[in-house]
């Protein structure tokens, strides 16, 4: 009894070891790099989040949850504004990106000639670097009549009487950040949808055509239902993306005024690299990781049900 137990145990170990030996040449090179340059730094960050980190002296004093208390109890509520803005960014830009991406993909897919041209041209914003895009947007949203938007609104269209200081106000600033997010990501959603559309069997269209369905009817009854899984994918990506907004905030508004256009990543950067508050910054990093994971889980739970149960029914 005893012998056979330890025997089977030894066997398992031996089997495990053999498996590892087989997998090692493949997995190990990547694993070593990831462990050293990604996982170790992450563990370090978690540790710092619970400590006071004196960066020059390299001393790390354990604090417990003090950094988190500090974040939540800040009298200006900067953290809450940042969190609000992350969520708003997701809520505002995601539907626009999904709808516009889907419509553009449908159009490009149905055009007789020039689909390649439109596909590439509409994808350009996606491959343009965030830094470059931010520089252009800063210029276009310039606060005076030198800015394109102000010029159009005031001097050309006469919609507004005064020049709007776009990047210096809470809502105009957020608007600029959202607009840039939409502009930058629509092309990406379009490409994803395009791939999905090309996967729809042509026979479905033919059948619908025979029934006399027009473009709109086809879209409504064939395309839309088939795109559900893709929509879910785009949605998850955009939601996660809305917690990674950073460069545009840094370069467009710098979080101003009074942190009202800030987001978590920018706040993290500001705390660490401007104020030496590495503990607080790490804590913010942890919190945003928790939000991302929680949101992904929630999205999965709610949307999965949806797609699996009536995804094929065509609603």
């Amino acid at each position: 009894m005893n012998a056979s137990l330890s025997d089977s145990f030894r066997k398992t170990i031996k089997k495990d070891f053999h498996q590892w030996l087989v997998a090692a040449p493949f997995v190990l090179p990547g694993l070593v790099l990831v462990a050293v340059f990604v996982i170790y730094p992450m563990i370090f960050t978690i540790r710092i989040a619970l400590s006071e980190y004196q960066i020059v002296r390299g001393t790390i004093t354990f604090l417990g949850l003090d950094n988190f208390v500090k974040i939540f109890s800040d009298s200006n509520g900067r953290f809450w504004y940042a969190l609000r803005n992350n969520l708003l960014y997701g809520v505002v830009t995601t539907p626009l990106i999904v709808i516009m991406g889907m419509v553009l993909a449908y159009l490009v897919n149905n055009i007789r000639r020039g689909s390649t041209f439109f596909k590439v041209a509409l994808y350009l914003p996606v491959i343009t670097s965030w830094v470059i895009v931010s520089l252009v947007f800063t210029y276009m949203f310039n606060n005076s009549d030198r800015g394109l938007f102000n010029y159009l609104l005031v001097n050309v269209l006469h919609i507004s009487k005064d020049y709007i200081p776009w990047l210096l106000r809470e809502w105009p600033g957020n608007f600029a950040i959202w607009l840039m997010g939409v502009w930058k990501n629509v092309g990406w959603a379009m490409i994803i949808y395009l791939a999905a559309l090309q996967g729809i069997s042509p026979s479905l269209y033919e059948a619908a055509s025979l029934d006399g369905a027009g473009i709109y009817a086809k879209f409504r009854h064939i395309v839309l239902p088939s795109l559900r899984p893709t929509t879910f994918f785009v949605l998850v990506n955009m939601v996660i993306g809305s917690f990674n907004v950073f460069i545009q905030v840094m370069l467009l508004t710098g979080g101003g005024p009074n942190g009202r256009t800030s987001v978590l990543q920018y706040m993290l950067y500001d705390e660490a690299f401007n104020k030496f508050e590495f503990g607080v910054a790490s804590a913010i990093g942890m919190l945003s990781a928790i939000f991302i994971v929680a949101l992904t889980v929630i999205l999965n739970k709610t949307l999965k049900l949806d797609t699996v149960e009536d995804g094929g029914a065509g609603a």
Binding site: I46, R47, L50, S226, R228, T230, V293, V297, K304, G312
Partner: peptide, 27 residues
């Protein structure tokens, strides 16, 4: 259609919290 089948049993849901806790513990 193929996509939809792949949707089943989404990966992320149950899986992520465990390694996350593990990491915090290690830290």
């Amino acid at each position: 259609m193929k996509l939809k089948n792949q949707m089943k049993g989404l990966y992320l849901t149950k899986a992520i919290l465990i390694p996350m806790c593990a990491l915090i513990l290690v830290a």
